[in-house]
Design a protein around this nucleic acid. Sequence first.
DNA 1: GCCACCGTAGTACCGGGGTACCACCCCCCT
DNA 2: AGGGGGGTGGTACCCCGGTACTACGGTGGC
Lengths: 222, 222
Amino acid sequence: MTTVLIVDDQPMQRFGFRMLLESQDDMELLGEASNGMEAVRMVDRLRPDVVLMDIRMPGLDGIEATRRIVASGDRTRVLILTTFDLDDYAYAGLRAGASGFLVKDALPEELLSGIRAVASGDAVVAPSLTRRLLDAYVDHLPTGSDHSRAEDTRLATLTEREREILTAIGQGSTNTEIAEHFHLAESTVKTHVGRILAKTGSRDRVQAVIFAYDTRLVKPSP
Amino acid sequence: MTTVLIVDDQPMQRFGFRMLLESQDDMELLGEASNGMEAVRMVDRLRPDVVLMDIRMPGLDGIEATRRIVASGDRTRVLILTTFDLDDYAYAGLRAGASGFLVKDALPEELLSGIRAVASGDAVVAPSLTRRLLDAYVDHLPTGSDHSRAEDTRLATLTEREREILTAIGQGSTNTEIAEHFHLAESTVKTHVGRILAKTGSRDRVQAVIFAYDTRLVKPSP
DNA sequence: GCCACCGTAGTACCGGGGTACCACCCCCCT
DNA sequence: AGGGGGGTGGTACCCCGGTACTACGGTGGC
């Protein structure tokens, strides 16, 4: 029996998922949450096997909720569902520790098999995203016997300019300082920063700094 | 209509695939090959949309055949099928340019939807392998953090509470989240943060994060 | 008894950060 | 001759972060 928690702010979406789950006798719906904060609390209490997580929600969004659920350390797996296959969300979701990423227009059977796969410890990614993931990172795949270290995927998606600016952020610079240093308008810096946050799955520049340190783009000084 | 070429050295395997494909009226089986060399030639002549490629074959194996087919530059996509989800084969296949990788014990519907996904330009990877791919290339966030032994004088001036909160800041938490986590009012958190910034000589929380990393109060995730 | 420090909490304020757009240029690739 | 991506810029808007106070209970020192 696979126990499931639905997290979505749209009642009709939840209704659809509920109907689908109730039609399966190996699945049990433990509850429904309409935002991230509620989801984290319910996971803590109900310990479902799988959480079906929407991304865009008021308050705490699905990415951050996923991060917290995964960080809490218990066995619950998160399967992210989104309306469109937005790459940035995918990266962020996977970085947050999700076990999978599917688009909502998937067929019911695909969704169900995705849930079962995730519950059994496997992972699933929507085909449209798998294509992009492979295109972007196939060069970094290990050659088989050689277990080379993984270079961070999200770092690789940044352009040269974005890496420069992320480095500056990682050194504590404000947008104004970055603009001066690179002879740019502050609005340009903001545009770059916005893209950096999206690509790295960071909520704000603080998390971007953490990302920069964790990927060794910026190294501790002493 | 999706045109397909089957490549497998075992006649019974081919038979199974042939039956499955013939049951679908949006799929057309263009032919069958029993080794890599034959496969390359038939692809060149028949231009199928999708090649179902076995890996282990006498003569030219499926990996090398995939490489040549992909290198030839036309639109044919290769979907690799293997008996076991051997990682090395999978990586090699994907590096060779395959659009997907499925295990032969997949359900018929999964196989069919995989073929359709690949034909439409998407990619598919067997869930059991997706899990490993994600584990290898998505660095999970650190859950626990043991305490440091840094001797920084500024760090020493912080009270226990302030160190706790600085650690939270260093993990990317917002004031609101910190307040919830420690059961405090946000105004209290702000008071603490203000004192932390003053004591550590930080202009804002971004610089406080850098301070936390540099003093090893918070450590980069490996 | 008093003082210093810590932890807690509040109000009022404002500036930077972040978002959501849109726009233009340039270069490379088909 | 288009198209796509990268780099640059702009506007409008909102909210969180940070500052500057004040305040009060608890604890430990002398």
